[in-house]
Design a protein around this nucleic acid. Structure first.
Lengths: 249, 249
DNA sequence: TCATGCATCTCGGGA
DNA sequence: TCCCGAGGTGCATGA
């Protein structure tokens, strides 16, 4: 069996056959079609006639892409269940149970259907995340300041979860809020919430926002609230790369 | 010219020809291939060999989908520029200028290429948004409480933008923070930030979180901070549907 | 399941 | 352009 089967301008019956076969063989189904779309669930939407690419994945994920933007115009998340109904026109129906959501695609004209028996055992290896900023801080606490001692990672407190909890050289409790990208007002509010929570039970608590940069508004609020900022880039290049880099010196 | 052109098992030269023709004709390009992926930009990633669906849109959007999940495993946003390089293997290269980001897809084997001359003039019509909650509140302020008078929508204050600013029957300033779905800790922090900002300049300020429900933690923090909650569902069915519904009674 | 917070978030609106 | 906040956010993680 070839990796990709395809059929141009299929009849309604062929559409049903191909879709059903894709579903039962857990293949990745792609349909190039002129269609209308109806969604009802957490919200509700309608999309008039137009040419779109429709993808149905074996895990139930359902994507409808227009010819612009990164985001699908309509979709259904993994776990949804799809089937075809032959009404006046063939209709793709995808149903999600919790929360209840329904997506219907009226196929006015199907230009091409493909059934892709995709094999993929690889997972993405990504570096430059907030998690790696935390690892860096635990390995080299001096990137925050001399004498800083990180104690907890992802520490639950009364109203939220603190990124890094530690003490400074004076013994003060220090809360770190890490952001892998430019920190905004939201990040400051988050840090403030943790600091206020901890201040209730302990004496002085310092709050430090750790990020590559700050928005203007974040800087203003941070200063007003007596919180601090430490500039830090998320490290790109995980353990392997760091090992390589070390060998260069 | 047909809506969809396609070529199974193309040679490297044919791949380059088809990709270039899709780009120059502003068509939607889809490639079913066994490939490796390298990304470097805001973060950095690698993805080993596997079967994926690659979509390149005429606006520069670039998507790589595995056979699971709603999200692309790698991508490039609109405005990126793509081209093909014929190295040992054909490579799709997509470059974004600001911030600088590069995505490279090494095409180890191409099963099928499609070039879709998609025409689509429709836009999604969605109902059930936060914006519609605000409209409802301005049309029927009593859904908040008797005597409430909404005055401003999306009102910029010192540290952020308030959803709805109004006054109650006693003349107190009232801040509303609207959420179309269950409100969480973040929503409470946001409301608290606005209330504190306004309290600095005015006397008493009430803060009301308006949402269909609250998380457990949000309820606790809300009560501790002396903020209020008003239950409200986002209205589904815009002006038309509301008209229909009225006619039913 | 729910709660919490990250994300190469994306996207739109406003200054 | 930056800033700010919504989103049918999706998604992983932990309780």
């Amino acid at each position: 069996m070839p990796k990709v089967e395809f059929r141009a301008n299929p009849s309604p019956e062929e559409i049903k056959l191909l879709v059903d076969s894709a579903i039962s063989s857990e293949a990745l189904l792609t349909i190039f079609a002129h269609c209308r779309v109806y969604y009802d669930g957490r919200a509700k939407s309608e999309l008039g006639s137009g040419d779109r690419v429709i993808i149905v994945k074996p895990d139930g994920s359902f994507l409808i892409h227009q010819s612009k933007k990164r985001e699908p115009v309509n979709w259904q998340p993994p776990g949804s269940v799809v089937h075809v109904e032959l009404r006046e026109k063939p209709v793709l129906v995808s149903v999600r149970r919790k929360p209840p959501e329904t997506l219907e695609v009226e196929l006015e004209e199907v230009y091409l259907i493909t059934v892709f028996h995709a094999e993929d055992y690889e997972e993405l290896a990504l570096t430059g995340s907030e998690a790696e900023m935390a690892e860096l801080i635990f390995e080299q606490p001096e990137v925050i300041e001399p004498g800083f001692k990180p104690l907890y990672r992802e520490k639950p407190v009364k109203h939220g979860i603190v990124d890094v909890l530690g003490v400074d050289s004076q013994g003060n409790i220090v809360v770190l809020e890490l952001k892998r990208r430019r920190a905004d007002l939201h990040a400051v509010s988050q840090l403030k919430r943790y600091v206020e929570t901890l201040k209730e039970e302990h004496g002085n608590v310092r709050g430090i926002l750790v990020a590559p940069s700050l928005t203007s508004g974040a800087r203003k609020l941070l200063e007003k609230e007596g919180l601090e900022f430490r500039k830090l880039q998320p490290p790109k290049g995980g353990k392997k790369s760091r090992g390589k880099q070390l060998r260069l010196f």
